[in-house]
């Protein structure tokens, strides 16, 4: 097992009066794709937001490469090399695609080679490079959102439901992009409801329920055990 790039130890997060995370323990090994699974409302998105510092953990430690970032301001976490793709995509609709990408390249100008790689993964971004991002379709916005995270090499990618509400053809584009990212050796923590995508990409799995991680293991183990899926997520995911 490689060294963890990210590990959460006993993380509790409250949102107003709700105790959303109730002692999350999880690790993301370096160079692997770790799937974060679970029903709606169990705290997957809150876990990512807590890592980014959008919500503050009341208790617990969040270690990025061994450094506790539980009290670090969000911009500093991002500058430590964490790329974040939020569930709502966080597109700047009034800015052009290009301007969205220029902003995402925090450390300097966009590297042309990396930009061309992104164009090859997401051709529509090249077509609409100077259009307002607000005019893109839902699928194109999601591409832009992931492309922004990919424009620079990050130590860790936090990606929240990249295939949500997308047509099957675009889902396959997303899956291919994430596969390419994985092939570069990126460490990814991925929330995903589409189990066939999760199965194809995931190395490790963490399953959450009621604000805790209730099962963690290898994807192969979960994928081959329908009874386990049934028990963990309350529904059979096979064939979904």
């Amino acid at each position: 097992m490689p060294e963890p790039i990210l590990s959460l130890e006993g993380v509790f997060t409250d949102i107003a009066q709700y105790h959303v995370l109730q002692g999350v323990d999880l690790t993301v090994p370096a160079g692997e794709v770790t799937m974060l699974l679970g029903r709606n409302g169990v705290g997957k998105t809150t876990t990512l937001k807590t890592v980014m510092g959008h919500w503050r953990a009341r208790e617990g430690r969040i270690l990025l490469d061994g450094t506790d970032i539980a009290r670090t301001p969000t911009p500093d976490i991002a500058r430590m090399g964490v790329g974040y793709v939020p569930e709502d995509m966080g597109i700047f609709a009034n800015l052009s695609v290009e301007e969205n990408m220029v902003l995402a390249a925090v450390t300097g100008p966009i590297d042309p080679a990396r930009r061309d790689w992104i164009f090859s993964v997401f051709p529509p971004l090249k077509t609409f490079w100077s259009s307002a991002a607000g005019n893109l379709s839902g699928g194109q916005k999601q591409m832009l959102s992931i492309a922004r995270a990919m424009i620079e090499e990050r130590r860790l990618y936090l990606i929240d439901e990249p295939t949500k509400g997308l047509a099957p053809a675009i889902i396959s584009t997303m899956a291919r992009a994430l596969r390419e990212l994985k092939a570069q050796g990126a460490s990814i923590l991925l929330v995903e409801q589409n189990f066939s995508v999760a199965k194809a990409l995931g190395d490790g799995v963490q399953v959450m329920d009621d604000g805790r991680v209730i099962w963690s293991g290898r994807m192969a183990e979960l994928a081959g055990d329908a009874a386990l899926q049934e028990r963990l997520m309350g529904l059979s995911l096979e064939g979904a």
Partner: peptide, 24 residues
């Protein structure tokens, strides 16, 4: 300018600008 981009993006979605690494 980049600072102008940050301002325009920040007006739209401040938390996302911070999540990209800018101290809004």
């Amino acid at each position: 300018t980049k600072i102008g981009l940050i301002v325009r993006a920040g007006v739209e979605n401040g938390p996302m600008v911070e999540a990209m690494g800018y101290r809004l």
